[in-house]
């Protein structure tokens, strides 16, 4: 599994992904980690099948006992079905996820993991030197969904927004936005259910200062490609299955 540093300051942002040993039939995922002193936050640590690869990658940059928190953007298995394994390994770990998914996500563990519920309006998580924001992204695609925004590093971890279905081994960043649109189109049209939710999210995200937009699948967006994505997404009609197409 490849690890790449996204931000290096008094703390670090790291992306882990493009696992060459991943079973073919499961969707490729990006996992993120914020290492801040003795506290490491894992963001969308992924499914059970890739646990050992994510663990190996995590421990190459963080001590085991420093992994204190997990954030799940929503309840899907490719986001958090590894929870039971993380919890067995780190019994004190805290899981931060939407309040309304608590009873559902607990099915992925023995049930007694420390769950820190995030209210619909969002909130913040304080690590050692930095504070990250939970940005509501409800209905994009999950009914209760959050992004993580770091105003200092100017990184928005956008969950499934900006996701692309890519061939294995794709580069980490979008290098040609126009050719990348095809890889995102079906995913967004079919998985995202609400044009209204999309518009509301775009309005709020346009107000944020973003250098990197980091989705959970596919390539990351950097610099002007972030704005290009927002413009493209704004014009896209989503929720297409409603019309049976």
């Amino acid at each position: 599994m490849i690890t790449q540093t996204l931000y290096e300051g008094s703390y670090q942002w790291i992306v882990m992904g493009r696992d060459p040993d991943k079973p073919d039939k499961i969707i490729d995922t990006n996992q993120y980690m914020v290492i801040d002193g003795d506290r490491t936050l894992l963001i969308d640590p992924g499914g059970m099948e890739i646990f050992s690869a994510v663990l190996a990658a995590t421990l190459s940059v963080s001590k085991l006992e420093n992994i204190t928190d997990i954030f799940a953007s929503h309840q899907d298995p490719d986001i958090i079905s590894s929870l039971g394994l993380w919890h067995e390994m780190l019994p004190e770990i805290k899981l931060h996820a939407s309040a309304i998914w608590e009873g559902f996500i607990r099915h992925f563990s023995s049930g007694d993991v420390t769950y820190v519920p995030i209210p619909d309006k969002g909130g913040t998580i304080r690590l050692e030197s930095t504070e990250l924001q939970y940005i509501p992204a409800h209905y994009l695609h999950s009914a209760a969904n959050f992004n993580i925004y770091d105003p200092n590093a100017k990184i928005l971890m956008s969950g499934d927004i900006g996701a692309a279905l890519e061939a294995p081994g794709a580069p980490m960043y979008v290098d040609n936005f126009d050719s990348h649109k095809d890889k995102m189109q079906f995913f967004h049209k079919r998985w995202m259910p609400s044009n209204e939710a999309k518009k509301d999210w775009i309005r709020r995200v346009r107000e944020l200062d973003i250098d990197i937009m980091a989705p959970q699948h596919g390539r990351l967006f950097k610099g002007d490609d972030v704005k290009r994505f927002l413009d493209w997404f704004e014009d896209l009609d989503v929720g297409i299955a409603i019309h049976g197409s």
Binding site: S52, A53, A56, L59
Partner: peptide, 12 residues
Amino acid sequence: TIEEMKESRKHM
């Protein structure tokens, strides 16, 4: 969990 942790160590 134990199996996965052992597997993980091989790749560390």
